[in-house]
Amino acid sequence: MVRIASSPYEDLETGCPMLGHPVPLRYCLEPGSELPCRRIVLCWQERFDIAGLLREVLTPEQLEELEKAPKQKISQLLELVAKVKKGS
């Protein structure tokens, strides 16, 4: 999991379009996964230089991973199915 150094903005809140309620920036930075939320730049770019923050705290590999085009929902589901079957 990415641990991002404290930011003066991390307690700021924005409405999360995925969850449907407000979340603090620190959630978008560490949403229970290895990378920040894929939407983080879209959701925060109007408030401060989020892209600059990410460039500071993420490795080039992590940035590259974050920038990859997300798969379609169906493709995501099939990957999960394959993962479950592989693990069982």
Binding site: R38, L42, A51, R55, E67, Q72
Partner: peptide, 17 residues
């Protein structure tokens, strides 16, 4: 287009196809 955080820019697609 949203500011790129790296060469290719952030790509996101959450909308119904």
């Amino acid at each position: 287009v949203s500011p790129p955080i790296h060469a290719g820019g952030l790509r996101y697609h959450g909308m119904a196809p």
